[in-house]
Nucleic acid binder design. Structure first.
Lengths: 150, 150
DNA sequence: GTTGACCTTAGACTTGGCTCTAAGGTTTAT
DNA sequence: ATAAACCTTAGAGCCAAGTCTAAGGTCAAC
């Protein structure tokens, strides 16, 4: 059996984080020592690794809680349930990427427009662009997801 | 002169947000009425719009505070200062996009691998992938920004 | 028999950007 | 004269996912 810091080292999560996950219902030690120390077995380690993998893919702790409950009794759940969670996450990620790409595009245009030199900023095209609502860019679209908008 | 809710309406920021920005040193009304009401003039409106535009491009409030101080006295600042902030923001955004794209790729692979049907999750390939450290994917790289790292 | 490295708990703090509340004062319209 | 619709302030709450602290208990080594 592993003590918390041993599980931490093996799982790549910190002891603090493991306790935090426990408080949030994700992982509980399968045993306690007489003194009350958390003791984890091999299955707990696999679970911790599962959580870490899922986190690294971007799943929220809430998603992971659901995935863990499915994992606990796969017979009672379907592939559909799993794909629904995954698809929802993919949609989130894709949406966020689109937002960031719009920002990226705007920032790139701004940088391209400015000399970036040691001139005074009096006529800085970036500053000027920020004064306009659409900063010199026809297609800012940053949080304006008004594709159909005039 | 505009009262706060009038500025809010014209600038697209809420009155709450304007007060919050004031507390954070971004925008202060150029006057107060006898009763202590905030009163904003046309320059304040332009400033509020500047802030809103900068926010929509993704600049943090800290960045915007710096941009505003440059805006206040452009003669004493250079294009370089402005591009440094913009470039740093672009780098942030690009890095975040790369992280999200890695997640997106992984999620897409997971979804492609799973039937998504009403079968029990017993052999769900997504669940199986999450059990592995690298979920069936050679190139997770999600928070591993170790391009040069061994 | 004491040092030092662990472990326990409850709970506060962090980040960033709001968002809201409470408790009161002002203005405007009727 | 009074109600509705504003305005003020300080400060709390929210989100997610940790991160850290304080105050104490335990365990192995020397």
């Amino acid at each position: 059996m592993l003590k918390i810091s041993e599980l931490a080292e093996r799982s790549g999560l910190s002891a603090h984080t493991l306790r935090f996950y426990e408080k949030n219902g994700l992982i509980r030690p399968s045993k306690r020592s007489e003194a009350g120390y958390r003791l984890y077995d091999a299955a707990d380690l696999r679970k911790a690794e599962f959580i870490r993998t899922a986190r690294s893919i971007g799943f929220s702790l809430d998603d992971i809680a659901v995935l863990l409950s499915i994992r606990l009794d796969k017979e009672s759940h379907t592939c559909e349930e799993v794909t629904v969670i995954t698809q929802r996450k993919l949609d989130d990620v894709s949406k966020r990427i689109a937002e960031l790409r719009s920002m990226q595009k705007t920032l790139t245009i701004l940088l391209d427009s400015c000399c970036g030199g040691l001139e005074t900023a009096t006529h800085c095209s970036i500053m000027e662009a920020l004064e306009d609502d659409a900063p010199g860019i026809e297609d800012t679209d940053a949080e304006t997801h008004s594709k159909a908008g005039s």
